[in-house]
Design a protein around this nucleic acid. Structure first.
Lengths: 152, 152
DNA sequence: CTAACTGCAAATAGTTTGCAGGACA
DNA sequence: TGTCCTGCAAACTATTTGCAGTTAG
C-alpha cells in the first residue's frame, strides 16, 4: 500500500515544520491518501465524520494546506468558488476532462502536450512549477443520451 | 474598432433573451469589450465607477453572465475563490502562464497542443466546448531577481 | 403606462481567523 | 506541565437573491 509511504512523508513534513503528530492530522492524511477520486474539503470532512472521526472543518482545511505544501495533494479548479483536491502520491501526472452535464471527471495524460508545454514555457523564460489543463464539454454518455442533435 | 461589433453582438444577445437595452448594460458591455487584460468583477465595477458610471455590483455580475453566454467574455480560474474574466471577441484562443510571485499573466498559443488535445478528447468520445490550460511558476523577471539560487 | 431593470441590503457558500478548552511531548 | 492543537463561532470574500423604487419600450 502506498498509503504507508504517504503517511511517512506526511510525518516528515510535520516534523520539518515543527508541527505535532496528532490523531486528527493523521486521520485526515490517511483519508486523503486513500481517496481514489477528487474531493472537496467538505466532502472529505463528511467522509471522516461518517467514519466516526472526531475532526472539525477547520482542522481539515489546515491539514490540507500542510499536505499541499508537502506535495501529497494537488488543488484543482473544476468548479468556480470551490477547490477540489486530489491525492498526488503514487499517481503520474494527468489532466482532466469535465462533463458539464453529469460532472463526470475523465483523466487523460499526454507526453506530447507536456513536452510542447515545456517548450512554450522555455521560450518565455518561464519556470513551470505546476500546471492545470482542463477540458469542459460533453462526455460520451451524455452525448449519446441527448442524441446527436444539433440543438443545445 | 472591434468594440462596435461587440456591442452589436451584445444587443442581439439581449434581444434574443428578451432583455432590455439599458444604459447600465451598455456601459458594462463597453467596458468589457475595451478591456485589454484580465479582470475580476470587482475590478470592472471599480473601473466603471472611476469613469463616473452609475452601476451597481449586482448589475455587473448579471451582465457578465449575459456576456458570457453570448461568448463575448470567457471565465478564467487563475486564483481560487475568484473568477477572472477576459474579453473573447477579436482575440484568438490562447492560454496562460501565471507567475506565482508577481502574479503576472503571460499568454501563449500552441496549435500543436490544441491539436493533441482534440485528439485526446476524440479518443474518449468527449466533445470539447471550452478548455483552460494554465501554467503556474516563475516568470523570467522574478527568476532573475531571486538569482538562480537553489533555495526558495 | 406597465413590466422589466436596478441596486441596496441581506442571504449564501467556501474558507480563514480569534479564542477558550483539550491533548501531545 | 506547558505549549501547541482543536474546534466553535465569528469574520471574511466572492457571489446570488428579495424587494422597493426607477426606467425602457
Amino acid at each position: 500500500m502506498e498509503t504507508q509511504k504517504g503517511l511517512e512523508t506526511f510525518r516528515a513534513a510535520l516534523c520539518r515544520r515543527h508541527l505535532a503528530v496528532t490523531s486528527q492530522r493523521m486521520k485526515i492524511a490517511r483519508a486523503v491518501l486513500e481517496a481514489q477520486d477528487h474531493f472537496t474539503a467538505d466532502a472529505l470532512l463528511a467522509r471522516l465524520k461518517a467514519d466516526g472521526a472526531r475532526v472539525g472543518r477547520v482542522t481539515v482545511y489546515r491539514t490540507l494546506k500542510v499536505l499541499l505544501e508537502a506535495g501529497l495533494v494537488e488543488e484543482r479548479a473544476f468548479d468556480k468558488g470551490r477547490v477540489a483536491y486530489e491525492r498526488a502520491l503514487g499517481r503520474s501526472h494527468h489532466d482532466h476532462m469535465i462533463c458539464v452535464t453529469c460532472r463526470r471527471v475523465i483523466e487523460f495524460e499526454s507526453a506530447r502536450i507536456e513536452r510542447e508545454q515545456r517548450r512554450q514555457a522555455q521560450a518565455c523564460g518561464f519556470e513551470v512549477l505546476t500546471h492545470q489543463h482542463t477540458l469542459f464539454g460533453h462526455c460520451r454518455g451524455c452525448r449519446a443520451k441527448r442524441g446527436n442533435g444539433s440543438k443545445a
